[in-house]
Nucleic acid binder design. Sequence first.
DNA 1: CGATTGTAGATTGTCAACAATTGACTTGAC
DNA 2: GTCAAGTCAATTGTTGACAATCTACAATCG
Lengths: 244, 244
Amino acid sequence: MKSARSVKVDRRSLDWRAADVLREQILSGKLVPGQRITETALAAQLEVSRGTLRAALRALAHEGLIQQVAYTKWMLPEFSNSDAWELYTLRGTLEGMAARLAAQHRTAKCVLAIEAAFERLVAAVKSKRHARVADADLSLHKTIVEITGHQRLIDQYRLLEQQVRHYIVCSNALIMDLNQIVSEHEPIVQAIIAGNAEAAETLARDHNAPEVERAAAAMVQEQAAAEAPPPKQKKASARQSKAA
Amino acid sequence: MKSARSVKVDRRSLDWRAADVLREQILSGKLVPGQRITETALAAQLEVSRGTLRAALRALAHEGLIQQVAYTKWMLPEFSNSDAWELYTLRGTLEGMAARLAAQHRTAKCVLAIEAAFERLVAAVKSKRHARVADADLSLHKTIVEITGHQRLIDQYRLLEQQVRHYIVCSNALIMDLNQIVSEHEPIVQAIIAGNAEAAETLARDHNAPEVERAAAAMVQEQAAAEAPPPKQKKASARQSKAA
DNA sequence: CGATTGTAGATTGTCAACAATTGACTTGAC
DNA sequence: GTCAAGTCAATTGTTGACAATCTACAATCG
């Protein structure tokens, strides 16, 4: 996508590169949710020292891809329905904001970029290869976010997209109706190109309403099931919110 | 605010506590923007080892309170007008989302919490103490965010609020019209209590429109000044987007 | 005199040894 | 048999020493 720019040496330090490798492993599903991770074993596997590996693990913890239990262990998060609800609602909000900004101060270059990304999505759907469609889908949304020039929004969206990808891999929630894809995205693209900020925001925000509703429904069902049978389980499902 | 719960020993590891101390120092303005930080000196000052301090610094870097230049140095970020624009627009979006969710599934307890926070704001305004008003203001918004139960939104908002506080400290942008404060927040609170999700979102989102507009205006002026005098400066202002 | 190359000091990056903490297991008293 | 305290192995937390890298300055050549 953005490779052939120039072939420089990777001057980042070891822990960043170790984090890249781990991130790739996690997002590709090689490490399963709930799985425990020991520093010594992973460090040996990646052939770096424990200190370096710890720095990488902490970086991934900040990205929400891993959890730390102080003095005890590292482990991959387990996704509940409320996690899905959180991910999709937050994503909708950020994409809505991006679409609004994109529609507001769009330039010729921006319009070209969006149209190109949309064309890639159309071509991907025609090819009927699900993986390619998924990539083009993510790419289109990322393009919309990036042309806003809002660096903090871009960074934040990247982190969230990672968690969404992780969730999708873990829950096998990749089912898509290929025919709907194009008709779902076209109005968003049109609104942005037309400069209709309000419409763009609303369309983008509610773009994955089905997922949100499904997750919300499953969530209340989950809660009901947990509360209906009187006292049965004791441990509250601890979330990742360990940050100060 | 949430102290007297129980007086336990702080069982978090050293690097977390070191990060707390540093965060406090940064947010209180004891370290000025652009200032360089050397690991050895800071480690000696806090009486922890360099490794521990590095972990704390990296945590703060993830929170956007500090920047790292690989192999070279750590330094505090310098805020430009585009930073202010980014912070306030993103904050508006997140607060809008929070207000919408709060209005949608509000409970008696939630309504009580919001009303209490609003009363504290009113009382603070009556006292005419700016610092107290600022605290109550932040507290009200935080309350709205927290009653959504959306853990990722809560975490994200906390990080953003930190950066906003840092910006305010660095730019002395604390000027407020005390009389306006209450009349600005009342409609938001009312909309949430009334369950009017759409109105709550819009009101909360555009709540600090003045700041956004001021920052946006200053931003384009900044750009114009940088482009009008032909080629004069060379270095593009590097932003914090170092994360992979 | 200007540009390039080499060198020195300071600073960050990496590592492996040591300390602290945890959780499971064993032991013993009641 | 049950519960409590004690012990031990595994794991994470912390540290100081060593290596790699950067910046600034000095030396050298044209």
